[in-house]
Nucleic acid binder design. Structure first.
Length: 250
DNA sequence: AGCATTGTTTCACA
DNA sequence: TTGTGAAACAATGC
């Protein structure tokens, strides 16, 4: 599920465990914790406390005090943060912290594409999609020959938009996912930013990207919630894409 | 059985 | 060199 709204929910979950002393770390999954060897993250964190939780787009990081390292987390394709829940079946808890008193925080990820890393390098990540200002949005999104949807999905351009939020936003803004990003007018870019912020805000409030107005129709045989036109379906930006060919021409 | 998947990184190519 | 697109990654569900 993880796109920006889910990552924000995960950040809020992490905030619940701030201040607790870390007494044990499960970092045995060498794929999720790459490039660290087992025990490296544990050695960096045991005895410390998480002091603040941050997010840019889908990328999370947690501070451990002035002299402590940062812990970077990413939910991948299917991860979530589980706080004070019983340990997951199998090895679905790919990374976990245990706290004094018995509490626990786990990166629960059936797909195993999440990440946990000490001192993450997020220098390539663009500004948060829900926070980026109007002028920066115009400059960063409104360029290039790639399809607009591919531009929105590029985390180095703006961070946080995933496949579903992209389709939801483009539908709300009545823009074609296939139009070259550099061909958008200033008015269209401003409209896109406004709808992106609104769609993101709604998703955070309502519990995730799947609560979007476009989402119930986003399936084979679906029709546009506004005009009833059968939706088009194709691969754009490497992802399956649904849009209304009447409301979003191009 | 085969295919698709709400994400990211790497690699090939123009 | 820069931008773009496809493949790889791991595991699960239809």
């Amino acid at each position: 599920m993880p796109e920006l709204p889910e990552a924000e929910r995960a950040r809020q979950q992490i905030e619940r465990v701030l201040g607790r002393e870390i007494v044990a770390v499960d970092d045995r999954d060498t794929y999720v914790c790459r490039p660290h060897a087992p025990g490296e993250i544990a050695a960096a964190l045991v005895g410390r406390r998480l002091t603040s939780a941050h997010r840019r787009g889908k990328f999370l990081w947690v501070e451990t005090g002035d002299d402590g390292p940062e812990l970077g987390l990413h939910l991948g394709m299917a991860g979530r943060i589980a706080v004070d829940e019983p340990e997951a079946p199998r090895h679905w808890d790919r990374f976990a912290l245990e706290f004094a008193g018995g509490g626990r925080m786990a990166l629960r990820d059936r797909r195993r594409l999440g990440r946990a890393v000490i001192e993450p390098d997020y220098s390539h990540v663009g500004p948060d999609a829900a926070e980026v200002g109007r002028d920066v949005f115009r400059e960063r999104v409104g360029r290039g020959s790639a399809p607009l949807k591919a531009r929105l999905l590029d985390q180095g351009v703006i961070a946080g938009v995933g496949n579903l939020l992209a389709d939801e936003t483009l539908w709300r803004a009545k823009l074609s996912p296939k139009v070259p990003a550099g061909e958008l007018s200033v008015e269209e870019l401003d409209r896109l930013r406004r709808e992106l912020r609104a769609a993101t805000r709604d998703a955070i409030r309502n519990g995730g990207v799947h609560t979007g107005r476009f989402m119930p129709s986003r399936e084979k045989g679906g029709t546009c919630p506004r005009c009833g036109t059968p939706l088009a379906r194709d691969t754009v930006g490497g992802r399956t894409t649904y849009w209304c060919p009447r409301d979003q021409p191009g």
